[in-house]
Nucleic acid binder design. Structure first.
Length: 708
DNA sequence: GCGAGTTATGTTTTT
DNA sequence: CATAACTCGC
């Protein structure tokens, strides 16, 4: 075994793989085989006599976990190591130690849509105006606090500003709503686990002896709560191995804390640090521009990528008329690659925002290119699927009012808004769940006898379903789908319903699959698992189709050919991420991650016009294009094209030379100061920090900048 | 109580 | 532009 592993690894990789006891940090650039190191390390640990059940590996997505499991098994090692995401691990721990964590083990996991309903309710309950305190904003703020393990009690005490005080109130109310529903949101899974591990020493000890080795991949994108969980999990033995790359940190907005990786040596002073700088994935040309681009980030340790591949084709930067031409040309280029013998599943198209997928989809359908859009959650957010799942959730967790409200009258069974409100009021007064109140509907005042009858029938139906619960999930779904009347109502809908019926069929199929493969199948486990599905989880690399995905979803993947699209100011970097330098740097890392996914062919493109919110808008090329360190012939061709559209007078008046520090005025952004100026004649670019706080990169020939 | 039609609203990335 | 929220007539 050891020999077999040795032959395939570089000496640096070996050092990490065969590291014995204590903390280990693997700082590794893209394509350096860091995930591979973890996989081999699991095998090596088992090979050295460690029992598989004593190993816990954490991946960023379920998909990555699945792949790692397969690879470990393929290496001839016994199954049994726990490999999952942080969230999945937390679900397991919380279910097992529910009492100690102070929760019930049949908790619902609230997804974004459920959370949104709860926060809206919370804002309403606090009698606040949703204008100033938009649910989305408050949810983000609450999530940020939770990721830092700040409770509402904490913030209640420390809040001094008006916003913080209101936030504390909403946070508290929101948390109570979740509690009433016996529900945890994504963040709670981490928060409750961290608190459990830190406050219940015996649970912590048990887990320390269960998992004697902890391995964490993509450590640069862990948040503070995850760090605290990891710290507690290795409290007794310090056998932690983390791998990551600060240059690939792209989830700061979600609470990822780069300090986790930067301070690793402080947290584990005896840590051995291994650096993997060789890149086995990409051609030198691709790595050269990746290096050049990422060097523009100020807050970063110098590091370069050492190519091990010797040759490769050029990186191509294309400028297109608009997003339709971009999609069309990308499709054409893909057809050429496929004709040259490249399998379709070795090709991928990346974009910054999901909305950008549509034009590509249209072009691919037109050109008959097989494709798959990597967006898993979309399936589970379809109305019919949510409806079915809501029924199932009620069976497992009757306190889940959100699910109950969803299906009490779906399909329509004559229990309308008024009835629901009256029963809800009754539930509030008696401090019981909505379902409990429905059971006692007889006692609710002002309720029509017809309504009472319908409610009784509904409760009877749910109780009947409960009796049907078994280990196997698929038969329960079929029963519920049929007897709830959902199936019939979809059948009656004609064409639209047909599509929905197919989706439910797919759900039943996947549940049957779950029944077959799960260790201990149960309805509870099934519901909790599917809540944690991620976008990339549905991605099937063997399907022989071109992959379309956001740049965030490309993490950990690689393709022979990659197309990175929409390199325009406001898109990449995204306008909502342009507020400060840190935001821009993260956007730059995102582009860096995209670039380094490509093994052999890289195509980067932007369009001169793009339809944004239904308006065709002239775009400004992304500042990142000028940071790649390449001159492209395409850009010059376009420039000529652009000249025809702009009269000479405008160009000359717009192309004065500016200096750093020059105060300027822009017709829409107002006053500001030039912070950077790249003199490239008619293509000159100025970076302007406006008084509004935003920083924009402007091409002088388009932007009407005035000196003031 | 229900659903069609209208109006407002809000727009990044995701476990 | 796309969807959510809302109104109004049955």
């Amino acid at each position: 075994m050891q020999d077999k592993i040795l032959r395939r690894l570089t000496s640096a990789q070996q050092k990490a793989v065969f590291h014995k006891e204590g903390a280990l940090l693997v700082i590794a650039g893209p394509g350096s085989g860091k995930t591979r190191v973890i996989t081999y390390r699991i095998a090596a640990l088992i090979d050295s006599g460690i029992r598989p059940v004593n190993i816990c590996a954490i991946t960023f997505t379920n998909k990555a976990a699945e792949e790692m499991r397969q690879r470990v098994v393929a290496m001839g090692t016994p199954v049994g190591a726990h490999i999952s995401t942080f969230h999945s691990l937390c679900v397991r721990v919380l279910r097992q130690y529910a009492d100690a964590a102070g929760i019930a083990s049949n908790f619902s996991i609230f997804d974004a849509a459920d959370q949104s309903r709860c926060i809206k309710q919370a804002v309403k309950d606090c009698e606040l105006d949703t204008g100033n305190f938009s649910p989305a904003r408050m949810l983000e703020a609450v999530s940020t606090l939770k990721n830092k393990l700040i409770t509402f009690e904490d913030i209640e005490q420390s809040a001094d500003g008006f916003f913080d005080k209101v936030l504390a109130k909403i946070y508290k109310r929101y948390q109570h709503i979740l509690e009433d529903n016996n529900a945890l949101d994504f963040d709670d899974l981490l928060v409750k686990s961290a608190h459990l591990l830190e406050n219940q020493k015996d649970v912590c000890s048990k887990l320390n002896s269960r998992f004697r080795y902890l391995l964490i991949d993509e450590y640069q994108d862990t948040n503070h709560a995850q760090y605290r969980i990891a710290r507690a999990l290795v409290r007794d033995h310090n056998n932690i191995c983390a791998t990551g790359d600060p240059d690939q940190s792209i989830y700061r907005w979600r609470g990822a804390d780069i300090r986790n990786i930067l301070d690793f040596e402080r947290d584990w002073p005896d840590a051995v640090i291994v650096k993997l700088e060789e890149n086995f994935r990409s051609t030198p040309n691709i790595l050269k521009i990746a290096d050049h681009l990422i060097a523009a980030n100020q807050s970063r340790k110098q590091k370069i990528l050492i190519p091990t591949r010797k040759t490769g084709s050029d990186v191509i930067v294309n400028c297109f008329e608009d997003e339709h031409e971009e999609a069309q040309q990308v499709a054409g280029q893909i057809q050429r690659l496929i004709a040259d013998g490249l399998p379709a599943n070795e090709i991928a198209v990346f974009y910054r925002v999901n909305a950008a997928s549509r034009v590509f989809e249209e072009a691919f359908i037109k050109e008959k290119i097989p494709y798959q859009i990597v967006r898993g959650v979309e399936f589970y957010s379809r109305k019919e699927i949510r409806d079915v799942l809501a029924y199932l959730k009620i069976l497992v967790n009757p306190a889940d009012d959100i699910a109950l409200v969803r299906i009490i009258n779906t399909p329509a069974r004559g229990i309308g808004k008024t009835t629901v409100e009256r029963v809800m009021a009754y539930a509030d007064v008696h401090n019981i769940s909505f379902y409990e109140a429905l059971k006692r509907a007889e006692k609710v005042k002002n309720l029509a006898s017809s309504a009472k009858k319908r409610i009784a029938a509904f409760v009877g139906m749910i109780e009947g379903f409960k009796k049907a619960i078994n280990k196997e999930v698929a038969p329960v779904i079929e029963l519920v789908f049929d007897e709830s009347g959902l199936q019939k109502s979809l059948k009656d809908q004609g064409k639209d319903g047909k599509r929905a019926l197919e989706n439910v069929d797919e759900l039943i199929n996947s549940a049957a699959d779950y029944d077959k493969t799960a260790e201990e199948p149960s309805l509870l486990d099934y519901l909790q698992q599917i809540s944690l599905f991620s976008d990339v989880d549905t991605y099937d690399p063997s399907a022989g189709r071109v992959a379309l995905m956001t740049l965030h979803n490309t993490k950990g993947l690689e393709f022979e050919a990659a197309f990175i699209t929409g390199l325009e100011d406001g898109i990449l970097p995204h306008e909502r991420s342009s507020e400060d330098d840190d935001d821009i740097e993260e956007e730059r890392r995102l582009f860096f991650v995209g670039i380094t996914r490509a093994k052999s062919h890289l195509f980067i493109s932007y369009a001169q016009y793009r339809t944004i919110r239904g308006r065709q808008t002239r775009t400004i090329p992304s500042q990142f294009l000028y940071e790649l360190g390449i001159e492209t012939t395409q850009q010059q061709d376009d420039s000529e094209y652009i000249y025809e559209e702009i009269d000479d007078e405008t160009i000359s008046s717009n192309c004065e030379t500016f200096k750093k520090g020059q105060p300027v005025r822009h017709p829409s952004f107002g006053r500001g100061t030039i912070t950077e100026f790249h003199d490239m004649g008619q293509n000159s670019i100025a970076v302007v920090k406006f008084n509004s706080g935003q920083t924009k990169t402007l091409m002088l020939k388009y932007a009407k900048l005035e000196k003031i």
